[in-house]
Design a protein around this nucleic acid. Sequence first.
DNA 1: ACAAATTTAGACAGCCTTGTCCAATTCGTC
DNA 2: GACGAATTGGACAAGGCTGTCTAAATTTGT
Lengths: 227, 227
Amino acid sequence: MKLGVSPDTFPPRSHEAKRISVVDAAASVFCREGFAGANIDLIAVEAGVSRQTVYNHHGDKEKLFIAVVRDLTERCNAGIFATIATFPDRPADLEADLVAFAERMNRNCICNRDGRFLRKLIQAEGERYPELFAEWREQGPGRTWSALAARFARLAYAGHLSIDDPDVAARQFLALVNAELQITFMLGGTPTEEEVLRSATNGVRTFLGAFAKRKMPAGKQPALAHA
Amino acid sequence: MKLGVSPDTFPPRSHEAKRISVVDAAASVFCREGFAGANIDLIAVEAGVSRQTVYNHHGDKEKLFIAVVRDLTERCNAGIFATIATFPDRPADLEADLVAFAERMNRNCICNRDGRFLRKLIQAEGERYPELFAEWREQGPGRTWSALAARFARLAYAGHLSIDDPDVAARQFLALVNAELQITFMLGGTPTEEEVLRSATNGVRTFLGAFAKRKMPAGKQPALAHA
DNA sequence: ACAAATTTAGACAGCCTTGTCCAATTCGTC
DNA sequence: GACGAATTGGACAAGGCTGTCTAAATTTGT
């Protein structure tokens, strides 16, 4: 009740710390074992608390699962939008800048712990919690694609790219820079730095091959090229 | 009625039929519930046999799971190679032919029951059965990509495309024509015919934007490009 | 129609898991 | 040091699941 400003109010300190510890451990176990296979005792041990503490904090297994997904969704979305904020709006070297951006995106949002865990939970349990993952879908990919499409549209408007449909281009950009990581993702692995870099490099090269400045809408149109 | 050639020897008929029925039901239940959540009783009911029959045929839950994965892998690989055999080696209309090929690939190998089930099992249990899925990886994606890369190389050699690395191009082709289906796949859904067509169309258009005949190897080469 | 093999239903033991309860202990704060 | 809240460990009931066993019913080949 003191500390009017930045409230660590009621729960002293390690209360919240334990809650986080439990959610983290639960994320790990749910991902490894699936919802049905996850064992509350194991989560408790991995979190370094007693089983009763898990129940005190989260009520039951399903509520704990939902807390895990909400937590991951929130952090992943924050990471994605923070990364999109670093998009190269005024590129010095378009190819190099896009490769660097793609690498940040992959490393900080897709390949990191939260990204891998959230993806796996969605794939494994998405059908069991429709409204939970519908929420993720709207707040996550939906807004991600829009934001990224807007950045590409801006690059096009500034004359760096030639894009028909920025939304399609945004989705294809992400698909391309991940093209070489698909199998690793499927099997739950973490790509090496080098794999991430190579996939990003190859993906951006192809992306620019399709969308870089020169554009001829099917017919020949050499007249506009007054460089 | 001995059929000396193709021996349906001892086990008469519905024996094998029941085995298949069990494996099919098991695939469905394992996918819906995960390995730990799958219930042998439920599999038996869904297969229309008694629980004991399940055990008679497959021994235990783990052996049944392995049989399911092997079965799916085999059928999926067969489908993929059959589809690759329809690749347009001598295209009349390159874009239209590639779109049609991509649609076949998506519809018959990726979006069908076997494809969705196998993908989900790999994602959910891949880490638990390393050698089982390593086998899939080599026989499936590994050979798929090689075969597809060879087809693209042939198109390039015939002068229809300009490709540096056919393996990379093959992976990017698949990534592009699936770009718009990712979220649906993640949540376990089945895309509509129209979504498949649109994703294939957009993907092939971008692919050809990057790899269609004209090529400038990254560095500027304005000597040749006097527009 | 007969004999062998297969399938079925049901019961069963053994094990594991969830979620609750409680008494003893520790922790943070005053 | 003392107080109240949080945590712990352990016991516990209820229920579910796997895998086995058996005797009866059914199917199959001849």
